[in-house]
Amino acid sequence: MKINRTTERSVKILELVAKANDGIDMDEICEKLVIPRTSCYDILVTLVHMGMLEVSTGAKKNYKIGLNAYRIGMSYTNNRNISEIIDPALKELSKELKKTCFFGVLEGTKIVYISKFEPENPIITTATIGTRNPVYSTSLGKAILSTMSDEQIREITKDIEFKQATRFTLKSVDELIENINVVRSRGFALDEREVEEHMECVGVPVFNEKRECIGAISASSLYKKDEDYVALGNTLKERAFKISKSLGYMP
């Protein structure tokens, strides 16, 4: 297979510029990619002309990703079904953790389970695809709420009757907001035996290219006193970040 050198260099330049949040000048591009200045200059001029790069003038010309490159990149996300990205990642996560993993979205004051994957020897859970559970007692719900302001949370939960599914279920919106503050600080939510007394779940929000929370992923299993839920939460944070990036999210 014959590779066109100019095209290859153009793509490598775009990749390099995309990683430089504050932009990058031509000298640094030439040095890092080992490209002759004359060849690099011609490529940069063309990419700027095509809207793939933007250039700011100063002591040195500084290059950043252009609007047209952003539009082309977003078309990848727009043309893919979200489930095509989330389902394989969730399936792999379930196999890795040996826990039942879910993807859920917020619908009114309920969490709706959209995807579910189980390990080889699953612990039976009552939640199935299509099941609805209260937003205040699920790790999925708390993860999603953690991306909102306290005022938004109060608005969503203003008509909720906090029912005690177990002795651990939260009893009021004030208790919920206090819990959400902890979720925000550590980056993951816990359903601490609040839906089913024998089950503990960890949840993390998922974002799209507009930096909007579109739902959350979670891992569920039997409650164990010696389980390291912080480590589990951190693993889910890493996986949720990868999923979000695949959906076009840029922090």
Rank of each mutant, 00 (worst) to 15 (best):
142 K>M: 01
172 S>G: 14
185 S>P: 03
53 L>C: 04
100 T>R: 09
222 L>P: 08
56 S>W: 05
56 S>E: 11
33 L>K: 11
240 A>M: 03
80 R>I: 11
107 E>R: 14
117 F>Y: 15
87 D>Y: 15
166 T>F: 01
86 I>D: 09
106 L>I: 03
21 N>F: 10
42 D>A: 11
72 I>G: 08
77 T>D: 07
154 R>A: 01
247 L>H: 04
219 A>S: 11
138 T>E: 00
81 N>H: 10
61 K>E: 06
220 S>T: 04
67 L>C: 08
37 R>M: 05
162 F>M: 07
204 V>R: 00
143 A>C: 02
164 Q>P: 12
34 V>A: 12
60 K>Q: 05
138 T>P: 00
110 K>A: 03
48 V>R: 09
31 E>N: 15
49 H>R: 06
23 G>E: 14
77 T>H: 00
146 S>W: 02
135 V>F: 02
96 E>S: 06
246 S>T: 02
2 K>P: 04
158 K>Y: 04
132 R>E: 04
161 E>D: 10
31 E>P: 15
52 M>A: 12
214 I>L: 12
119 P>L: 08
12 K>C: 13
78 N>P: 06
123 I>Q: 07
141 G>E: 01
27 D>L: 08
212 E>T: 09
122 P>T: 03
72 I>K: 14
75 S>G: 12
134 P>S: 08
101 C>P: 13
177 I>T: 12
133 N>C: 15
185 S>G: 06
106 L>W: 14
146 S>F: 01
196 E>Y: 03
3 I>P: 03
242 K>Y: 14
90 L>I: 07
139 S>I: 00
91 K>V: 07
64 K>S: 06
45 V>Q: 10
32 K>H: 13
71 R>D: 12
136 Y>F: 02
118 E>P: 11
34 V>C: 12
24 I>W: 02
55 V>A: 02
184 R>I: 01
57 T>F: 08
223 Y>S: 15
164 Q>D: 10
116 K>L: 09
237 K>E: 15
62 N>Q: 12
155 E>F: 11
193 R>V: 01
16 L>A: 13
140 L>E: 01
10 S>Y: 10
176 L>N: 01
220 S>Y: 00
133 N>H: 14
82 I>G: 10
22 D>V: 10
29 I>T: 09
122 P>R: 14
191 D>A: 03
232 L>G: 15
50 M>L: 15
124 I>D: 10
177 I>D: 03
210 K>C: 12
133 N>Y: 08
36 P>A: 15
244 S>A: 01
53 L>T: 03
18 A>E: 06
234 N>W: 01
138 T>Y: 02
224 K>T: 05
84 E>Y: 15
195 V>D: 00
144 I>R: 01
217 I>C: 07
192 E>K: 15
59 A>W: 14
111 I>W: 02
61 K>S: 05
188 F>H: 09
215 G>H: 07
88 P>W: 11
67 L>D: 11
23 G>S: 14
18 A>P: 08
211 R>K: 09
85 I>W: 06
77 T>P: 06
238 E>D: 14
133 N>M: 13
189 A>M: 00
171 K>F: 07
172 S>D: 07
171 K>T: 05
145 L>C: 03
122 P>A: 09
